[in-house]
Computed example of a mutant assay.
Amino acid sequence: MSNQDVLTYCYEMLGGNSQLQHIQNRNIVSRAYYFTYYECIEHIQKRLGWSETTHKGGVHVRTLSRLLDKTSNDDQKIKQAALLHNRMINLKKLRTQADYRLQLKITKAAAEYCVREAEKIGIELSNL
């Protein structure tokens, strides 16, 4: 399975109708975040080799902290990565709500936003 397969699956879910649309919306939000997480590993950890900037928190916090590594000689790249960090943290918060806050309604619009944002983040990660 490729990272792109996850994003493609999100778009497929968006295009389909489900009798349990509220659950499908949650799955879309969750998978969209995970696409960006996998892309972060691929581009920031593996390709660029940026280091974790924190050793506190779970694997996601530590992985995303690589976007805050300031060892690059390119100040623009450092700023862009920090902005991507914030955007990914926001997607992670939405994913957490979708996965654990079952009393909250996750709308189709929220799911659509997450997929589009994930796609943009993926492109920007690949361009760092």
Rank of each mutant, 00 (worst) to 15 (best):
M1A: 05
M1L: 05
M1T: 13
M1I: 11
S2T: 15
N3V: 08
Q4M: 14
Q4F: 09
D5K: 14
V6N: 01
T8P: 00
T8I: 12
T8Y: 06
Y9V: 05
C10I: 10
C10T: 07
Y11S: 03
M13L: 15
M13V: 09
M13E: 14
M13Y: 03
L14W: 02
G15I: 06
G16H: 13
G16K: 12
N17H: 15
Q21L: 04
Q21T: 12
H22P: 02
H22G: 14
I23E: 08
I23Y: 12
Q24A: 08
N25K: 13
N25I: 14
N27P: 00
N27A: 04
V29S: 06
V29H: 06
S30Q: 05
R31D: 10
A32H: 07
A32F: 01
Y34Q: 08
Y38S: 08
Y38N: 15
E39Y: 01
I41F: 11
I41E: 15
H43I: 06
Q45P: 00
Q45F: 08
K46G: 01
R47W: 02
L48E: 15
G49R: 12
G49C: 10
S51Y: 12
T54L: 06
H55Y: 10
K56F: 11
K56H: 14
G57M: 08
G57F: 12
V59N: 09
H60D: 04
R62L: 10
L64R: 11
L64H: 13
L64W: 11
R66P: 06
L68M: 12
D69S: 10
K70S: 08
T71G: 00
T71V: 07
T71N: 10
S72V: 10
D74C: 01
D74P: 02
Q76F: 07
K77W: 00
I78H: 03
K79Q: 14
A81S: 10
A81K: 00
L83G: 06
L83Q: 11
L84Y: 07
N86S: 07
R87Q: 11
I89F: 11
N90C: 05
N90H: 13
L91G: 05
L91A: 09
K92G: 02
K92H: 08
K92S: 10
K92C: 04
K92I: 03
K93E: 09
K93A: 09
L94Q: 14
L94E: 13
L94G: 08
T96E: 09
T96R: 12
Q97K: 13
Q97C: 10
A98T: 06
A98P: 02
A98G: 09
D99F: 11
R101Q: 07
Q103E: 12
Q103H: 13
L104R: 13
K105G: 03
K105A: 12
I106P: 00
I106S: 01
T107V: 03
K108G: 03
K108F: 14
A109V: 13
A111Y: 02
A111G: 13
A111K: 01
A111W: 00
Y113Q: 02
V115K: 08
V115H: 06
E117D: 13
E117Y: 09
A118S: 15
G122M: 15
E124A: 14
L125V: 06
S126W: 02
N127E: 15
N127F: 02
L128M: 12
